[in-house]
Design a protein around this nucleic acid. Structure first.
Lengths: 357, 357
DNA sequence: TAGCTTTTCTGAATCGATTAAGTAAAACGA
DNA sequence: TCGTTTTACTTAATCGATTCAGAAAAGCTA
């Protein structure tokens, strides 16, 4: 910029104005500045320097608890990102993806070094050290799905009615007459091992939305007199269809065999469907399956998956807009929990006779 | 930082060293600095200021031609991002998503303002003005899939064997005996209208990989004596299953009806499958369908989709690593075209009698 | 034409760090 | 004990812009 100023014979301040407030200088000079800039290959103010001086870098960070590559493998997370990116776009901001873990190690370093104006914190376990790092940055932040227990900070949050959605899913099954129900869930807490999760393990559930869903399932089955301890819960170490398949093969190998499976995500449900196919079980004839998320693929699955819709994109959009509002100095508060909705498709039906009660 | 320095009674340089080169000062002082920092709520050097001084901000930008929300809606793009994010993670860098279009307007502004150390340019049309903006930034950049015609810059690229993959797909169909083949493609050039694309429109194809695929199809069908003009090509304005469905309904309404459809992406192929279902056509009995990309859902589709596998994640990983190498000052060159591979599943078969020739 | 406002541009401080070069003190070798 | 190396810090320049408080020039009014 100094060079451009020298070339035109004006002060750097003027060049800066040429870019940032064209009304502050005469039309002719502005043209000359731009022309000289073009000649010297200057494309405008350096984003970093501008960021430093202005105190805003023009980007919002999305903090994801795990490795970024996991996030991209999860269609629900991707839908959420889509929403956030839309909000960022509206505000003309960039979107920096900030991993909570780097090469497998959980490390708040990325949070400290992220050049952003604020954070959208997604999918963070309660009490995660990452939250401390976010707070320390003293930047506006919006929490999604998992508001931490300590409400010390003034961070607003956006969440969905996870409990209600899960309850609706389970009520649908018990309403159809299912009594032998099994649950396939993803990580209950960071660094999971996988396998059947007894009461102890379930009590460790660190993700709020996960706990809410499990509680929702529980309420529904207990409401028809099925004790929760009779409902096997299989914890998958990763939210992948292959893991869901493995879990389902184990659950479906139990006797008496479950007549229905509640999967805590569509990804896992797809695996359950695959397992049923592989074991020669027809869905929904021999087995009913309910997913969670209602990702686009759910409608195209074979059979079309009954699942719980949650407004992922809207969730991201609202979280993003909320952050943008906070960036602007507002004290905007998060909306109440977003609605979830059971979508009945072709993967659920009454249990075959003799299996129900 | 100045405050911390004052608190401890040392110079700011020492505080900086405490964070960046702990070996430069005594253990005791370092502890005192850290302790004072904690007391004053200082979390370490400001990323922006550090970026300015060091000339590196610790982030790489992924430039996507369209709106970010479109990118997230495309599973292939998401897989690519996954690869790039993995490379970024390896190098301890952040990932900034840079939209080529903001609220629908194609605008290189985001490129100018992106605080990054380099770009991975994905899916850019040839001759896009965006490329000029990237070049002007004079940052290392890696081109993916669509190297622009002018090889003026020294930007390396990573691409896949799109022509070969497409040819294999079409050869598979003609090998099965199909002669009435139709093509469903996504945008041929920016700002598409959609509809049947005649030779004129096809000649405008601005995305290199798209043209390579179309050419691959063409070679294969012409090799068995079918003139390319007899192959209807339907251009969808967006890469969405719904668009593929609409396209297929139109193509399948033509008489004589095509016995096979080549879809240029799996997303579109899913729509084709849906259209066939809706029209009471069995796949592969009445209609064969081949996709492109081999996204995870392809294997789970009903029927499992025959498609062309391309290593999306690896492509992103290589592009990311290449950029990282360039960032380090290396002159690393891109690998040759990555292989594509036809994956035959359940959506293709010999045409029903009487429809072939 | 004097006095006043407006327009157009400049000077200089500032944002928050990094880093090469330099200095004072401590440790070391002979 | 003197010269030399090492250790532990500091000084001051720099990264590339923004922005506020003026100053000079121009335009306007009466």
């Amino acid at each position: 910029m100094k060079e451009v100023a020298a070339e035109v014979g004006v002060s750097p301040a003027t060049v800066s104005n040429a870019y940032n407030r064209p009304d502050q200088l005469s039309e002719g000079l502005r043209r000359r500045v731009m022309e000289a800039a073009g000649r010297l290959g200057y494309t405008g103010p350096d984003p970093t320097a501008r960021g430093l001086r202005r105190g805003r870098v023009g980007a919002i960070g999305v903090l994801y608890a795990d490795r970024l590559s996991y996030a991209f493998a999860d269609p629900a997370a991707v839908l959420f990102f889509e929403g956030v990116s839309r909000a960022a776009e509206e505000a003309g901001l960039g979107l920096l993806l900030v991993p909570g873990s780097i090469s497998g190690r959980h490390d708040p370093e990325a949070v400290r070094g992220a050049a952003v104006d604020g954070f959208v914190v997604y999918c963070m376990a309660e009490g995660d050290q990452m939250m401390g790092a976010v707070r320390d940055r003293r930047l506006p932040a919006v929490l999604v799905d998992d508001p931490p227990k300590d409400p010390a900070g003034d961070m607003p949050n956006v969440s969905v009615d996870d409990g209600g959605g899960a309850r609706a899913a389970a009520e649908h099954l018990v309403g159809l007459g299912h009594r032998r129900i099994a649950v396939v869930t993803f990580e209950l807490a960071p660094r999971p091992v996988g396998g059947l999760a007894g009461p102890d393990r379930q009590a460790q559930t660190a993700f709020r939305s996960t706990r809410l869903r499990l509680d929702g399932y529980r309420e529904a089955v207990e409401s028809v007199g099925v004790p929760w301890r009779d409902v096997p819960v299989y914890e998958c170490p990763e939210n992948l269809p292959e893991e869901g398949e493995r879990a389902a093969r184990i659950l479906l190998g139990m006797r008496p065999r479950p007549t229905a499976i509640l999967a805590i995500s569509d990804q896992l449900a797809f695996g359950v469907l695959e397992a049923a196919r592989g074991m020669g079980l027809s869905v929904p004839g021999d087995l009913s399956v309910v997913g969670y998320d209602d990702v686009p693929e759910a409608a195209r699955a074979n059979p079309p998956l009954t699942t719980v819709n949650q407004p992922h994109v809207e969730k991201g959009l609202l979280a993003g807009r909320l952050l943008v509002a906070r960036l602007g100095g507002g004290e905007a508060e998060g909306p109440g929990p977003l609605p979830t909705r059971l979508v009945v498709r072709g993967s659920t039906a009454r249990p075959a006779r003799g299996h129900g009660a």
